[in-house]
């Protein structure tokens, strides 16, 4: 079996991963909760209103972290997909699949908060701004990945096929991003010039950083949780699953 080859990577064997993820996930979840409270406190109580945008700029504290997370998670998903495809590491395949829904959720939240930030700032919910547009395409890429995974019944084949798609996507993401930025600068006359982010004070920057870490921890907790369930389903006939369900049931 392929597992033998990756023994050195102890974390990668499904039972070890299952146990470790089960132990770690609650900690990441708790950390996320604390960081969200701290970040929101700094962002809403300590940080003063922006002199130009008033209070609406506070949307930034959710908009920017979700944007970063959705992009980062896509790359991470492709890395796990590649590991799964090349070295046949089952846990990596499971991780890639488990990341996708959370990444798509962050992409959606980024678009949603971007639209709600746009209304008071630009006077309209949607602007074909380069960043919003490429975020929209990123959401489509996530949806395509999940749709392909769902369409193939055989789990191994689904993991391999969607890994190819994730890799094709990750090669394309920078090209898409630059072409969209370019497209946007060329059509500047037609679109509204995007106001730059408010001049950052240190408090705002700290709030942004804390919120980003909070999203990070949340993503890790949720992804580990989902990966565990995925692994149980995939390996339901394996001895280690039977051992562990015996205790729980």
């Amino acid at each position: 079996m392929a597992e033998q080859r990756v023994q050195w990577f102890k974390f990668a064997s499904p039972p070890n991963f299952y146990d470790l993820a089960g132990r770690l996930a609650p900690w990441f979840g708790g950390l996320a909760a604390i960081l969200f409270v701290v970040g929101l406190y700094i962002g809403f109580i300590l940080a003063p209103p922006d002199y130009q945008q008033g209070n609406s700029y506070r949307i930034m504290f959710i908009h920017v972290p979700t944007a970063w997370m959705s992009m980062f998670l896509y790359v991470l998903m492709a890395v796990y997909a590649a590991i799964g495809l090349i070295w046949r590491v089952k846990t990596a395949e499971v991780m890639a699949k488990a990341i996708a829904p959370t990444g798509a959720m962050f992409a959606f939240l980024c678009l949603w908060s971007g639209a709600l930030w746009g209304k008071p700032t630009w006077g309209t919910y949607w602007v074909w701004d380069a960043r919003l547009t490429s975020q929209l395409i990123l959401l489509f890429l996530y949806l395509g990945y999940m749709a392909l995974h769902a369409a193939i019944e055989d789990r191994q084949r689904a993991a391999n096929a969607s890994a190819i798609l994730a890799l094709a996507g990750v090669v394309n993401v920078p090209i898409i991003y630059f072409s969209v930025v370019w497209w946007n600068t060329l059509h500047q006359g037609a679109s509204i010039t995007v106001t730059s982010a408010p001049t950052m004070e240190t408090v705002m920057f700290v709030a942004l950083l804390v919120m980003t870490f909070a999203c990070w921890m949340y993503a890790i907790a949720v992804v580990l949780w989902r990966a565990r369930l995925e692994l149980l389903e995939r390996e339901r006939r394996a001895a280690w699953v039977l051992e562990r369900t015996g205790e729980k049931a």
């Binding site: 395409i137 489509f140 890429l141 949806l143 395509g144 749709a147 392909l148 369409a151 193939i152 096929a161 969607s162 190819i164 798609l165 094709a168 996507g169 394309n172 090209i175 898409i176 072409s179 969209v180 370019w182 497209w183």
Partner: peptide
């Protein structure tokens, strides 16, 4: 290739591939 032999492959192709066509469209 990725949708080969799948039910509803034709519709799925569009969801998978159209986002990847963006750079060619823009250029």
């Amino acid at each position: 290739a990725l949708t080969l032999g799948l039910r509803g492959g034709g519709v799925l192709i569009s969801l998978l591939i159209l986002p990847l066509y963006v750079p060619a469209l823009v250029l």
